[in-house]
Design a protein around this nucleic acid. Structure first.
Length: 180
DNA sequence: GCGACAG
DNA sequence: ATCTTGTCGC
């Protein structure tokens, strides 16, 4: 089972959210995340009453064996500009950026710069920022930096993760109670 | 054959 | 992703 949340934010304000539970199609396999979990993420997004101008996804973009990570898939299917944020690259390689918040360094795959390491917090491990659907790399980096300050993770992803984990936690508690 | 490997 | 242990800073 999987729990997915989509949140819509305006600045620091959490405007709305939609959480849902569903089944993953098969075991996790690097390179097939869109097939495994894409439908769940799509459904979560479509549950929002008002669509945001941009979607931030916890997934890669062109850093993918077929240059089409989940962030790209969702942009195409939903018709919304997307960018991806991950803890590490899938295929791409590149040296780490300097220690200060705001520093970045390119990640290459098959001779192309497909993403950037971005230091969102001084002295803390950097994140990977992926241009997705109709969002340029420079713009993606600027946007991710604008949504971070106190924490390493961009606020929309923090909020969505929190909602999904709350839903999973209450589900597990309910099951536990039913079984005694 | 072994390690790597978005989440 | 999950799990465990330890450290640092407000």
């Amino acid at each position: 089972m999987g729990w997915v949340a989509a949140v819509r934010m305006e600045g620091p304000e959490l405007k709305e959210w939609h959480v849902l539970e569903g089944k993953a199609r098969f075991a996790y396999e690097p390179g097939l995340l869109a097939l495994r979990e894409g439908p769940l993420l799509e459904a979560a997004f479509r549950g929002l009453s008002q669509w945001p101008e941009l979607l931030m996804v916890n997934a890669t973009g062109r850093d993918h064996p077929r240059k089409a990570g989940l962030a790209v898939h969702l942009g195409v299917v939903l018709g919304v500009p997307t960018l991806g944020v991950t803890r590490s690259p899938l295929c791409a390689e590149g040296s780490l950026p300097s220690n200060e918040r705001g520093s970045r360094s390119p990640l290459f795959y098959e001779g192309q710069c497909v993403a950037y390491w971005v230091r969102t917090k001084t002295g803390v491990a950097p994140l990977v920022v992926h241009p997705g659907w109709r969002v340029e790399a420079e713009e993606a980096v600027r946007i991710v930096l604008s949504w971070t300050r106190r924490y390493r993770t961009p606020e929309p992803l923090r909020q969505a993760r929190k909602k999904a984990r709350q839903a999973r936690s209450s589900h597990l508690l309910r099951v536990e109670r039913e079984l005694g």
